[in-house]
Amino acid sequence: MSTYMMSMKTCVSALLASTVPALADPGSNGNDTFGHMMWGGAHGWWGGLGMILFWGLIIAVAVFVFRMLTSNRVGETRDAIDILKERYARGEIDEDEFQRRKQQLQG
């Protein structure tokens, strides 16, 4: 499982876990006209679902932006000569092949 999926599952789990106290106790202000946001008032369950979706979207966008900004691919450019040197160092090509390709790349 990718790190991204694990972090998304963690965010969603934390978001859902944070709504449990509101669901468990509808509350009362003395005249029973209004409880917590998810139980009383005009929004009912739709308001709670909308809140979960809203914060889930905010967290998902934040995670996506953070991963894009910290990705190794950002700004990573490798020169062809560097790749050729790495292949030679690993033993994938011999010295003659290295010299021939190096000359082709240089002009």
Rank of each mutant, 00 (worst) to 15 (best):
W46V: 08
K85T: 03
E92Q: 11
L15I: 06
F66D: 12
G91N: 08
A62R: 04
Y88K: 08
I83A: 04
N72W: 06
G30D: 05
I81R: 12
T3F: 10
T33G: 06
L57P: 00
M6V: 12
I93V: 08
D25F: 10
S7Q: 14
W46F: 10
G47N: 04
M6G: 09
Y88I: 00
L57K: 07
W45S: 15
C11H: 06
G44Q: 02
F98G: 01
W39A: 07
L69H: 11
A80N: 13
G75M: 07
W46M: 13
S2W: 04
D96R: 11
G41K: 04
V63D: 13
S28I: 02
V65E: 11
G47W: 00
A42W: 05
P26G: 03
D79E: 12
I81V: 15
G30V: 01
C11Y: 07
G30S: 06
L49M: 12
I93L: 03
S71R: 10
E95S: 13
E95K: 11
F98S: 01
A22Q: 04
G41C: 08
G40N: 02
F66G: 07
I58Y: 12
T19Q: 05
G47P: 02
R78F: 02
T19C: 03
E86Q: 14
I58F: 14
Q106H: 06
M38R: 02
N72I: 07
Q106P: 00
Y4A: 14
M5C: 11
I59K: 06
A62Q: 10
V12G: 01
T3L: 15
Q103M: 10
G44D: 02
F54A: 08
L69Q: 15
L16T: 05
C11T: 08
M68P: 00
W45P: 05
Q99D: 14
D25L: 10
R78A: 02
G35A: 03
R73L: 13
M5G: 03
L84K: 02
L16P: 02
V74I: 15
L16H: 12
I93Q: 02
R73W: 10
R67E: 13
G30Q: 05
C11F: 13
E86P: 00
C11K: 09
E92S: 09
G48Q: 01
G40E: 01
Q103L: 11
